[in-house]
C-alpha cells in the first residue's frame, strides 16, 4: 500500500523569496524507512510537517494511506502519527511514565493497559522500567530523554512515524547506538518511517530509501546503493563525494 503520497505540493512562507516546497510529488510505500536528506533550508522539515498538518500546503494534495489529509480533523490525524523532534520536547513537569502516556490518557485507556504499555515501551527503548518510570526529564541525559521521546511517539503504534533530526542534539557515541536501535525497532514493526537529517552518512546508513532535497525540490528518491552508483545529477554526485572524503560511506 502507498503510505504517503504528495501530488504537486507547493509551499512558500511569507517573507521568503523562494518556495520551501516547489511542486513536490512522491510516493512512499508502506514499511519503508525513508531518510530525507538535505542542507538547511532545502525543505526537508517543511516536507514532513506537511504530513501532520503543522504546516498547510499552498497547493497540491497529500494522502496518507489513501486518504486526503485535508479531509481529516488535524488533531485526530496527529494522534495516528508518531512525531519526534530534535529538541525532544519532553514535558518537564511530568514523570517519564506520564510523558509516555500523554495521548493514551487523553484517549482514556484504562489504567492496566497504560501501565503495561508504558513499561513495554520503556523496555523497547532499552530503559529499565523500574528505574526510569518515576523519574523527571531534568534527571535524564540527552540520549535518555530522546529515548523517552521515541517511546512517547511509539506507544499508540502509529502506522507512520515522522522524525525530524531526532539525534541532532545528541553526542556522536550515543547517536550511533540510537541509530542502530531505531533501525531494529523499525525492522520489527513493519511500520513506515520518515527520518529527516542533514547527515549524509546517517541518511545512507538508516534508509531503505533516501529522498535528497535541495531548494524545495526532490532531486532523487532511490535506494542508498542506487544513489551512490547512479547519482541523478551533479549536486548529488558532489554530496556522495563529500561523504566518501570524510572516511567512506
Amino acid at each position: 500500500m502507498i503510505a504517503v503520497e504528495l501530488k504537486n505540493v507547493n509551499k512558500q512562507f511569507k517573507g521568503q523569496t523562494t518556495p520551501a516546497l516547489d511542486n513536490v510529488s512522491v510516493q512512499i510505500e508502506e514499511g519503508e524507512f525513508v531518510t530525507v536528506l538535505g542542507s538547511s533550508g532545502c525543505g526537508k522539515t517543511t516536507l514532513i510537517k506537511m504530513l501532520n498538518r503543522l504546516y498547510e500546503a499552498d497547493s497540491g494534495e497529500i494522502f496518507l494511506f489513501g486518504k486526503n489529509i485535508k479531509e481529516q480533523n488535524p488533531v485526530e490525524l496527529r494522534r495516528k502519527i508518531g512525531y519526534v523532534i530534535q529538541q525532544i520536547g519532553l514535558f518537564p513537569h511530568m514523570t517519564v511514565k506520564a510523558n509516555i502516556a500523554t495521548i493514551p490518557k487523553i484517549l482514556k485507556w484504562d489504567k492496566k493497559r497504560i501501565d503495561k504499555e508504558t513499561d513495554r515501551m520503556l523496555r523497547l527503548v532499552q530503559l529499565e522500567p523500574d528505574e526510569f518510570r518515576d523519574r523527571y526529564p531534568a534527571q535524564l541525559s540527552g540520549g535518555q530523554q530522546q529515548r523517552i521521546g521515541l517511546a512517547r511517539a511509539l506507544i499508540c503504534d502509529p502506522r507512520i512515524m515522522l522524525l525530524d533530526e531526532p539525534f541532532g542534539a545528541i553526542d556522536a557515541i550515543n547517536r550511533e547506538i540510537l541509530q542502530n536501535e531505531l533501525k531494529a525497532i523499525h525492522q520489527k514493526s513493519g511500520r513506515t518511517y520518515l527520518f529527516v537529517t542533514h547527515d549524509i552518512r546517517e541518511a545512507l546508513k538508516l534508509g531503505t530509501k533516501v529522498i535528497i532535497m535541495n531548494e524545495g525540490k526532490i532531486l532523487q528518491y532511490d535506494t542508498p546503493e542506487n544513489i551512490i552508483n547512479n547519482p541523478a545529477n551533479e549536486f548529488v554526485e558532489n554530496l556522495i563525494r563529500t561523504a566518501e572524503l570524510k572516511g567512506g560511506a
Binding site: N52, R78, I81, Y83, I85, Q87, I88, G89, L90, F91
Partner: peptide, 21 residues
C-alpha cells in the same frame, strides 16, 4: 519553550488540552 508546544501539537493535543496539560 517552543519545543514543548510543538511536541504537544505534533502528538495531537487539542488547544484546550495543550493549555491545561
Amino acid at each position: 519553550p517552543k519545543a514543548m508546544l510543538e511536541a504537544a501539537d505534533g502528538m495531537g493535543m487539542s488547544t484546550a488540552q495543550k493549555f491545561f496539560k
